[in-house]
Write a protein that binds this DNA or RNA. Structure first.
Lengths: 124, 124
DNA sequence: AAAACTGTAACAATTATTATTACAATATAA
DNA sequence: TTATATTGTAATAATAATTGTTACAGTTTT
């Protein structure tokens, strides 16, 4: 997103972005799918295609990016193991932990609302 | 920690706690090691040993537990892949992301300061 | 028609997490 | 003083999650 903000009129290929991240183009395209759902970026297929920002970087908050990257999961998650339903604590722990996990997500989101992609980009 | 707070005078074995969590005692003991470093709990070896709270639950904040469980890592972490040092963004991205990651940690800690183990326990 | 892209599925490889086994050290109790 | 029940910790195995790769259909430009 920093690269897209810095060169905002260019179409960037997943291959070029993957090179900066030192990863592979398919992973980039998968992440692009999320960001497109939130209308932060647009993509163009075909020769000379690629992706670019759909909104001005000063209208994109880090929280917007975070929310799309995060998806439906909490940042911190419950154990995969089912706590003992025979235990007074075990049988209610997940219900009570979920409230905490949701608060954690919200506090992250609030803190990321303090910065735009534009201001992040301007540090480079 | 909820179990320890609920039955605060008993010595709880790692085996019993593992049963509630539906995991194994060794994992519990490893986590206990962290919590002991922070002086939240004490443990006793030998027959009739176990662990119990070292402080009153109304003096233990969820942030205290979180900090010990978290260790030195950020909650969200950088990629293991080294970004391209030849890229204007890649060569500085980690430095700039670290500030964001630190802010995220801090916002979680602040939000967890709002609740004590005592109040968490009282929901059960 | 050729070339250079995205999108996506299937699968492989790697890494991280969780579980298990084993046992030394310790403390209690018979 | 011996048997028993515990923590602490290391080593390793098993499982799960993440990341990477290959393949190719569909799209757009030249």
């Amino acid at each position: 997103m920093t690269i897209l903000a810095m060169y905002k009129d260019d179409w960037h290929t997943s291959t070029d972005i993957a090179k900066s991240l030192n990863t592979n183009p398919v992973l980039v395209r998968k992440e692009i799918a999320n960001l497109k759902k939130g209308n932060l970026i647009e993509s163009k297929e075909g020769k000379h295609g690629g992706i670019r920002l759909l909104k001005n970087a000063n209208k994109i908050y880090l929280s917007d990016i975070f929310l799309l990257a995060k998806g439906d999961e909490h940042v911190l998650s419950l154990s995969n193991n089912t706590p003992a339903p025979t235990c007074r604590v075990g049988k209610q722990i997940n219900k009570n932990l979920k409230v905490v996990l949701k608060n954690i997500d919200n506090s992250i989101i609030e803190s990321l609302k303090d910065q735009t992609l534009e201001s992040f980009k301007n540090q480079f």
